[in-house]
Structures are given as structure tokens and as C-alpha cells.
Design a protein around this nucleic acid. Structure first.
Lengths: 175, 175
DNA sequence: TGAATACTTCAGTCTTGACAGAACATTCAG
DNA sequence: CTGAATGTTCTGTCAAGACTGAAGTATTCA
């Protein structure tokens, strides 16, 4: 592995930093960044060397990235080592992350809110404000969820068009 | 402060947990949750007692919530203490968080990516793949940013309509 | 078969950030 | 002016979890 050029280092470090701000382990995010900009799949030991972290740390981080579906392992002819490559398409990456966060965090939250709302309803209730507030939170999440489901099922080119549009929102909604 | 009922405890604890998953301090998120479901503004000491955390911890967490614009302090007649109330409207809350994350994280990331892309362009370049990838990331962020700006400037009722719609997306985009 | 290679898991260490409690600052009532 | 009430800041402690190196497992090849 050639040393990383300065701008690429900057990118990887920044991506790692952003990771932490969004609840993602720094090393995991850095490895993701590295694989994104790599022009070929990398074996774990090369990643460890490049980022100067322990081999074992790379192993678990790669597992994590694979569990998100952001990284896949593959093989290279004449090399026994696993090689890892990142999803490269930014839109696909985005959707993967959204799907996964929905599955891991939003959906369970909706379930919890629903239970809480239910429990508060059946008590004859000195906490009607809380009930109302939680109900609104629940409704909000359900609304955005179903909105997302609809965006999600658009074929990708249409979806991209949808996001590039936006200037025309007013016109559409005005009708 | 009456003790928290069981479903409300559940809600607050869950909200705290979700906080950590999104890079927000657990106590900060818990206080936010408590204030959301409270039917009146609460003074800091009451929050500390209710959530069983140190008064000083509450102080700094409230500062944090205020810096996000999610919580405001106010005064109650005949009480010298500051009382804190959360924004209650879920849509407004959502927009506040989006605005703030854009300002704190997305915009700076765009700046970094732009610098990196620039630096990679001027080097006569063995890293054209990285350049391409970072360029696409940049483009993606700029696209979503401007999409968000357009959604953002809709009057709230229209915006809500926009999110409740979604079923009609296909029809609209088909044209 | 066993040495070499690759990968994973585990146990202990280290770091970061969260937190408590104390010290400090400010305001206000008397 | 003083002391009680309130809020903030600071310092040291602690815990969570990130990370390392070593031990363990699996696979391949000589």
C-alpha cells in the first residue's frame, strides 16, 4: 500500500470524526472511508497497516461494516486472504444506511412509543399531556416511515430525480 | 414532582438510549424526553431529583439542549429559579434538529470534501478513483442539501402535507 | 501430518467522555 | 451588608467501550 496522500488522509480522518458524531465507532468509519476511496479491494492486514490500528480491531470493524451491508468480502486470484470492498454508489450507500437505521432504531422506537401510548391510555389518567405528546411523536414517526417507504420503492433513477427536483415542490404541492 | 409512572419511565429511558445511538449524550436526551412529556416547565433541581443525576450534570445538559434550541428557559411568578420547557411541536423539533445537524456536521463536511476534491484535482493524479468517489460524495451532499433547503422553506402546513403524501410520488414523478 | 497463513475471539489495558461534588459566582431578600 | 437561594464552572473519579496483543481456531499447502 502506498502511503496515503494528504488530502485522502484528511478525508478519512474527517469521516471518522463524523462517524463519532452519529454514533458510529471512529475506526469503523475510517475503514469505511478508506475502502470507499480505494481503487481495489483491500485485505485486512493492509487496512491495519495503513490506518495504524491493530489487526484485531480491523477484523471486528469489518464485521460491523458487513453487518450494515456497506462492505463485502471477496477473493483475489492467488491470494488466500479475504479482500474487502465498499459499496461505491453513494445513493445505494445512503439507502443502506437509512434502511438499517430504520430497522435498528426507528422501528423499535415506534414499538416502544406504541406501548407507552397504550399504557397511558388505559390508566385513568393524570398524565394526559404526556399521552398526547407521545402520541404525536408516534404519529410523526409513522408518517415519516411511510413517506420513506414510498420514496424507497421508487426505481433509483426516479428517486434521484425526486431529490434533484425540489425547486418544483411548491408547484406540485400548490395543486 | 410526583414519581414518574412506569410507561413514562420507559419512554425517557428509551429516548436516552436512542440518543446514544445518534451521538447524543444519554442524560441530555433523557432530560429532553422528560421536558417533552412534562405538562409544565421544570426547574433544574426537580429534573435532577426526578432523573437521579447530579445538579451540575443537569445544568450542563440544559445548556446543551438550549444550544440546540430545543429547550428554552422561562420564569414562573414567585419563583426565582429558572424553569425549562421543551419545544413541543414534533415537526418544529424535527426541523430544529435537522437545521442544527446540517449546520454543525453536513456543511463542514461539504467544505472538507470540496477541499479534498480540489487538492486531488491539482495533483497530477495517481488517485483518480479517490477523486471520483469524493466528488460523488460531494455532489450527493450538495444535492440533498439543496433539496432540504427547498423543503425547508415551505410553510409548515404544506411541508406536512408533503410528508403525508408520498403515495402520489410515482404519479407526480411520472410526468 | 504439521507448518504456515489467515482470521476471530478473548482478556486485560487504556482512553475518552460522563458525571458527582465542591468551589465559585451571582442575585436577591431582609 | 449579609446570608440564603440559585446557577455555573472546575477538578478529580469512574465507567463504558475502544483497542491491543495474545491465544485460539480454521484452512491451506508442502
Amino acid at each position: 500500500m502506498p502511503e496515503l496522500s494528504e488530502p485522502i488522509q484528511t478525508f478519512i480522518l474527517h469521516w471518522g470524526e463524523m462517524g463519532t458524531r452519529w454514533g458510529v465507532n471512529r475506526t469503523v468509519a475510517q475503514i469505511h472511508a478508506l475502502l470507499m476511496v480505494s481503487d481495489r479491494p483491500l485485505p485486512a492486514d493492509e487496512i491495519a497497516e495503513t490506518l495504524q490500528v491493530a489487526r484485531s480491531n480491523v477484523s471486528t470493524s469489518l464485521k460491523e461494516l458487513q453487518s450494515w451491508g456497506l462492505v463485502k468480502s471477496m477473493h483475489v486470484l492467488g491470494d488466500r486472504r479475504d479482500h474487502f470492498q465498499s459499496e461505491k454508489d453513494v445513493w445505494d450507500m445512503f439507502l443502506i444506511v437509512m434502511d438499517e437505521r430504520k430497522r435498528r432504531e426507528i422501528d423499535p422506537s415506534i414499538a416502544v412509543l406504541r406501548d407507552c401510548a397504550e399504557a397511558l391510555k388505559s390508566e385513568s389518567n393524570p398524565e394526559s399531556h404526556a399521552e398526547k405528546q407521545i402520541g404525536e411523536l408516534l404519529q410523526f414517526m409513522e408518517t415519516t416511515n411511510s413517506w420513506y417507504a414510498n420514496v424507497r420503492k421508487l426505481p433509483k433513477p426516479l428517486m434521484i430525480r425526486f431529490f434533484k427536483m425540489g425547486g418544483r415542490l411548491n408547484k406540485i404541492l400548490g395543486s
